[in-house]
């Protein structure tokens, strides 16, 4: 009996080791990006649509082009500290290759071969096109170098075990689109929302492991900071017109002419930099959402 139990434990360890091996951080093969060259002008659009600065600028900063990191994000899993992603070669990501950058965005894998925590919304960015990745890289290299050393996250056990993020990715890193889109405008809106804007990171509730509950897509969720609630933006309880949504994203004004506050004010600052066509596409996508469960 004792030997049998020992056997079960050993088998369990072997299976666990196998799973962790199979789900180890994946780098992208350099050949995949060999023939792509970056267009910084489109990269700027990707940058603002992707909302990079909202998390990576300094705490309280209004400078959307300075990315020293340092903002702290308190979540049920612990406190994450946004890293420096400026072009500084020593403290930022200036010495990365475009392929390392792509591995980070598309696979959630660091240049050192570790899993990133999904506070970095790579479950969204995983849907980006390779060309947009290259364009974003070209743009971000034009931004100033910021000399600020990174601080470690403060994450409690067991969430601090990065290897466990391998199986997590199998469960929750899904590169398929969430919503159907059958017109070019809806497809553009879906790309802006599901691949860049990561709206669902806050507007969709999470399960106990922090994965998105896609059945309640955009159905509203507790604020990850612990205070208040992120609203439902599906027809379940949200009735703004497409014009209202597009104007809100441009100006921050609600249909009642209250103005955006909190984190959404950061989002509006980014969305205001997009073209009117892109804001209209996002509005069309939101209007096409099914009512959340």
């Amino acid at each position: 009996m004792k030997r049998f139990l020992l056997g079960v434990v050993l088998l369990g360890l072997v299976v666990a080791a196998g799973v962790l091996w199979l789900t180890r951080p994946q780098h992208i093969a350099p050949e995949r990006f060999a023939n792509l060259s970056g267009d910084a002008a489109n990269g700027e659009t990707v940058y603002f649509a992707g909302g990079c600065a909202s998390c990576h600028k300094a705490e309280g900063s209004e400078d959307a082009l300075s990315l020293p990191g340092g903002r702290r994000f308190t979540t049920p899993f612990g406190t994450f500290v946004a890293p420096n992603i400026s072009s500084d070669a020593a403290t930022g990501i200036g010495d990365w290759t475009v392929v390392q950058f792509a591995s980070a965005l598309l696979n959630g894998t660091s240049p050192e071969g570790r899993h990133y925590f999904p506070a970095f919304p790579y479950t969204t960015y995983a849907r980006m096109t390779d060309q947009d990745v290259v364009d974003l890289w070209a743009f971000m290299q034009t931004l100033p170098a910021e000399d600020r050393a990174n601080e470690p996250h403060d994450i409690g056990f067991p969430f601090n075990i990065r290897l466990s993020l391998g199986p997590w990715k199998v469960l929750f890193l899904d590169r398929d689109w969430v919503q159907p889109a059958d017109t070019p405008e809806l497809q553009r809106g879906r790309y802006l929302v599901e691949a860049l804007g990561h709206c669902a990171e806050c507007h969709t509730p999470r399960n106990i492991l922090g994965g998105a509950k896609t059945a309640s897509w955009m159905g509203g969720a507790p604020n990850p900071s612990g205070k208040g609630k992120i609203p439902d933006i599906t027809p379940k309880s949200f009735d703004w017109s497409a014009t209202d949504i597009a104007y809100y994203l441009e100006s921050g004004f609600t249909p009642e002419f209250d103005s955006a506050g909190g984190e959404m004010a950061e989002v509006v600052a980014n969305m205001a930099r997009l073209s009117p066509e892109d804001r209209a596409a996002i509005a069309a996508y939101v209007k096409a959402l099914p009512a959340a469960n």
Binding site: K227, K229, S251, G252, S259, A260, G261, G262, A265, V268
Partner: peptide
Amino acid sequence: ALGGVGKECSACHKGYRQPQE
């Protein structure tokens, strides 16, 4: 010009007003 006004509305609401609920 309305955009310029909206920017300041948001600037204050972002940092100094408690989020809803």
